[in-house]
Each structure stands twice: as structure tokens, then as C-alpha cells.
């Protein structure tokens, strides 16, 4: 007896996808047509993607890396020729019928989202700040802190202790102020060149594996004709920050993961 298969959904688009280059990535990659929409799917083994199997596999980082990359590659391939609504990793249906029912229920909304996404791309901008170097530059450039340092040297130990504490607080405040100022300024300048923008959770160092701290994790929905201006602005900001201990990482174009929220959800959250 052959193993039961589930339907894995990658993305939905309104143009017939060309899947020739992605056929090698997964078995049975195919699209599913319903009411003017194409759902790009593959058949996956229940032992790997069923509730039990997925639970086990999601704890295996190598499995997650490989399969998340495949998910992304397939959507990128479809995105090369069409606007796409990307689904989250691991969206599975028991049967073609349950997928069809979902498409039936959301077809109008998917079409609305696809119209919104037309001729636009998602770009990601992450900004990192080197807190240690920022502290150094603050110490050397802020007159108030320099003044306190002078006072500490000429003060008796008791007073010096409290001055030292005050200095640490001022330093932390000033570093935070700089981080907020730069990240907000960058976000707003880029937001002005975008249709939509959003700010996401900051990722900790354990995840980024970088020495410096993530201070902004943002995404922008940019018109294809405005991408040049957007990149120019990123370059301008990069130059502006070069000696200020900030690093900007801009990536794209991405499938619009951050900009295809469903209306029902927005109403629910309103």
C-alpha cells in the first residue's frame, strides 16, 4: 500500500505558473486551478508533513533549513513571472478538496490582494548597531560625559562612585537615543518611497550570529519602478552611517511575505 500524501501549498497567483525549473526540487509539483487563481502545490508524504512527522522534523534544524529553502525557491521561481501570495512554511491540506474549499472561500480576497501587489516587490532592510563602538564614540563626543569623567578624576572615592553610576546611565541613554534616531530616520525615509512598510521583531544575536545588535528589522513594499530610488536611498544611508557604527543590510526582491495579510484578520484585530 502506498503512503498517504498531503497537499503542500506554496503560493497562489493569477497567472499560469511555469514550473519547469523547479520540478527537480520536489516530487509532484503542480498547480491547481480554481476560479482564475493558480495554487502551486506539491504532494508530500504524511510521515514527513503530517502533524506527528512535522512536529518531529521541525526540531531538526537541518531538515528545516533544507525544506524552508525549497519553499522559498519554488515561490521565487513563480514570482519571476507573476505576482504571488506566499504562504507560510508548512501550510498543508489533507486533500485536493480541502484546498479547493479554501480557494473557494478566499478567491475574491486573494484577487484583491494580488491587485494590490501588482508591479510591486518586497524589500527587507535590517540595521545593526555596534553598541560597544557606539559607547566609545559617545564617550569621546558628548561634552556632558567628558565633563563627568573629568569630575570623577578629581573627586573623592565616594562621590566618584556616584558620578560613575551617573555616567553609565547617561551613556546608555545616549546610545539608545542614537539607535532610535538612526533606525527611525532610516525607516521613515524608506517608508516614503514605499507603498507599505512594516517593522518586525528584532532577532537576537544567537540567531543572527553577528557581533553587533539588530536595531531595526523592517520590510517595504516597493513599486517596481521605484526600486532604483529605494536602492539609492539605502546606499545614501549606508554612506551616511559608514563611520557611525551602523550597518545596513538590504535584501530583495522577496515574495511579499509581509504584505498579504487577509482582510478578515484585519477586521478581527481592529
Amino acid at each position: 500500500m502506498t503512503e498517504n500524501r498531503l497537499v503542500y501549498l506554496y503560493c497562489v497567483t493569477n497567472e499560469e505558473p511555469n514550473l519547469t525549473e523547479t520540478e527537480d526540487l520536489v516530487d509532484d509539483l503542480c498547480f491547481f486551478y480554481h476560479r482564475g487563481l493558480y495554487a502551486v502545490t506539491s504532494k508530500v508524504k504524511e510521515s514527513k508533513f503530517g502533524e506527528e512527522g512535522l512536529k518531529k522534523n521541525m526540531a531538526d534544524i537541518e531538515w528545516v533549513k533544507a525544506n524552508a529553502s525549497t519553499h522559498e525557491k519554488i515561490i521565487e521561481q513563480v514570482m519571476a513571472n507573476a505576482d504571488v501570495i506566499p504562504f507560510k512554511f508548512g501550510t498543508l491540506f489533507n486533500t485536493d478538496d480541502s484546498l479547493r474549499a479554501m480557494l473557494e472561500e478566499y478567491s475574491e480576497e486573494f484577487k484583491t490582494i494580488l491587485r494590490k501587489l501588482e508591479n510591486k516587490q518586497e524589500w527587507g532592510v535590517k540595521i545593526y548597531g555596534d553598541t560597544d563602538k557606539l559607547k566609545e564614540s559617545v564617550i569621546n563626543n558628548e561634552s556632558e560625559i567628558l565633563k563627568i569623567e573629568g569630575e570623577i578624576k578629581s573627586s573623592p572615592p565616594g562621590k566618584a562612585f556616584f558620578l560613575e553610576k551617573k555616567k553609565t546611565e547617561l551613556l546608555a541613554q545616549e546610545v539608545n537615543r542614537k539607535i532610535n534616531e538612526y533606525s527611525q530616520e532610516s525607516f521613515h525615509l524608506l517608508e516614503e518611497l514605499s507603498f507599505e512598510a512594516c517593522i518586525n521583531k528584532l532577532l537576537p544575536k544567537e540567531v543572527t550570529e553577528r557581533e553587533d545588535n539588530m536595531v531595526l528589522n523592517s520590510a517595504f513594499l516597493v513599486g517596481k519602478n521605484e526600486v532604483g530610488d529605494f536602492i539609492n536611498m539605502v546606499d545614501t544611508l549606508k554612506m551616511h552611517y559608514e563611520n557611525k557604527e551602523f550597518f545596513i543590510d538590504c535584501t530583495g526582491p522577496w515574495p511579499p511575505y509581509n504584505f498579504c495579510g487577509l482582510l478578515k484578520q484585519r477586521v478581527r484585530n481592529a
Binding site: 507560510k88 501550510t91 518586525n200
Partner: peptide, 9 residues
């Protein structure tokens, strides 16, 4: 992106 974003149905 793929683990945290994208449409969830």
C-alpha cells in the same frame, strides 16, 4: 520570512 510570515490559513 518563511517560518514567521506569509499567509496563514
Amino acid at each position: 520570512r518563511v517560518l514567521d510570515k506569509g499567509v496563514v490559513i
